[in-house]
Nucleic acid binder design. Structure first.
Lengths: 192, 192
DNA sequence: ATCTTATTGTACATATGTGTACAATAAGAT
DNA sequence: ATCTTATTGTACACATATGTACAATAAGAT
């Protein structure tokens, strides 16, 4: 059998995720990551392939804690699920002492620095979110809690816009009450 | 008298603004700017001092076209001004063929790459926007169009969140109708 | 014509970053 | 004990980037 890895790959991925989150893709270099990890670039390229491959892995890890997953919660009605989803989001952002906002949204404007494939995969995450919201609105119509006269796509865009706004504002507005105030007021106004 | 400048300073500032807008602060270097401008770094440092001084100038130029300026329009009621402001924003973002979103918001997550002073000046722009919105809500109360029972700061945060959401979404949602749909629906829900 | 001085050109010293190549290492299966 | 092979260490060859220093340039006021 071959020589074993001398460093903790999970811990390295975790650190990388945090770097991309805080500083953004184009401010993260292979060199600086390796220095923080105490490994050589040689080890890095062997384990991760490239910086953008690592970035994709980091996005994957990040999305394991995605508040939008609440939308699939089978115990909740569509409207409850949407409200819960925003509640969880506000709690999560307020709890973050580093006020990092959202990794995905923070990196949307770094497209030029990435391989095209990576930039597209990033944008696809937003599309997925919009689609999940739209599906939940549709579910709300079936459940009779949302008027079928409403345009589901348009409502989903309102919700995605709200999520984006809260994520970004959370970098400067740190109080959970204020963040939830935004969500609650806007959701109520939209009929949720 | 001294030797005259050989390049167009305004044009250079314009190009720099666009670079910061499209690529973000940490993806812009003095070297690449100079190469695009066909000037030496020597000339650059003489004219602009440093990259972050240029960035501050670029923000200043950018904000000369700020849709939030509609809030000060004396011919409009507070509610009209707020709606107009979002209408102008949607039009502006949809018209941008490069889908750059908002320079200020795009760079909020680049704070780590900048001198602290510059990062703070960036965040102050957001605070200014929130304060301008809050003042307009207050004006609406005076005009009798907004209930005095409402929390002005909370409503201002809802509006700032909406503006942020639209700015960011505009990088992927290019239709003016869809963007305005988000603004119109959300504004109506909030009572504007 | 000369002088002043902002601007420009060129060079230096240094730091950071990338990607590859190849030899040395070591875990554990045979 | 030997062998296999992923991992690690070291080095090479570049490319990119920063900030400063100082001499050369040229516009136009005197």
């Amino acid at each position: 059998m071959a020589r074993a890895r001398q460093f903790d790959r999970e811990a390295a991925l975790d650190l990388a995720m945090n770097e991309f989150w805080q500083k953004g893709y184009s401010a993260v270099s292979v060199k600086s990551l390796c220095e923080q990890l105490g490994i050589t670039r040689s080890s890095f390229y062997h384990s991760f392939g490239s910086l953008d491959a690592l970035f994709e892995e980091a996005m994957g890890l990040y999305l394991r804690y995605n508040p939008m997953l609440e939308l699939e919660n089978p115990k909740l009605t569509a409207v409850q699920a949407i409200r819960r989803c925003f509640k969880v989001l506000c709690k999560l952002r307020a709890k973050d002492k580093q006020h990092r906002g959202c990794l995905i949204i923070n990196n949307l404007n770094e497209g030029y620095a990435m391989p095209v494939k990576t930039a597209k995969s990033l944008q696809a995450k937003i599309d997925n979110s919009i689609n999940a919201l739209e599906a939940t609105v549709e579910r709300g119509k079936v459940e009779g809690l949302i008027s079928p006269a409403q345009n589901s796509r348009a409502l989903a865009l309102c919700l995605q816009s709200l999520a984006t706004g809260i994520n970004t504002l959370s970098m400067q507005v740190h109080s959970e009450e204020e963040l939830w105030g935004i969500a609650d007021t806007t959701l109520s106004g939209l009929g949720f």
